[in-house]
């Protein structure tokens, strides 16, 4: 139960950063916070009380193993998160090169 609360909080903080912070890099950080929140949500959905990691070793019987599917999804999501953040940061470098500022309200040549 506590994990649901934690993931909801993480997502909330991420979105809050996005909505309030003007600096573009802070926004991208917000995005990765949301991503981690979502990953935590996925894992906690797959978690079953009192069961161990889904590695079938001689000592572990299949009956008390946690659901592996969300963990596979999280694995994929983490990589997506990394690649999006990498691309976003490199684009921010280029934006800074042109606009000399990272304030989102200044970076708005294309409007109306």
């Amino acid at each position: 139960m506590m994990f649901y609360f934690a993931s909801a909080a993480l997502i909330a903080i991420g979105i809050y950063m996005l909505m309030v912070k003007k600096n573009l890099i802070k926004m991208i950080l917000g995005l990765s916070v949301i991503d981690s929140g979502v990953n935590l949500l996925l894992i906690s959905i797959g978690y079953i009380n009192g069961k161990t990691a889904p590695i079938i070793q001689p000592g572990v019987s299949p009956s008390n193993v946690v659901d592996p599917l969300p963990q596979a999804l999280v694995l994929t999501n983490i990589v997506i998160g990394v690649s999006v953040t990498a691309l976003a940061l490199s684009v921010v470098i280029r934006v800074y090169k042109h606009y000399k500022t990272l304030n989102s309200s200044e970076v708005r040549d294309l409007k109306w």
Binding site: P54, I56, Q57, P68, Q71, A72, L75
Partner: peptide
């Protein structure tokens, strides 16, 4: 594969 996550992934 022993590691079920790898099996799924």
């Amino acid at each position: 594969s022993a590691n079920l996550v790898t099996a799924v992934v």
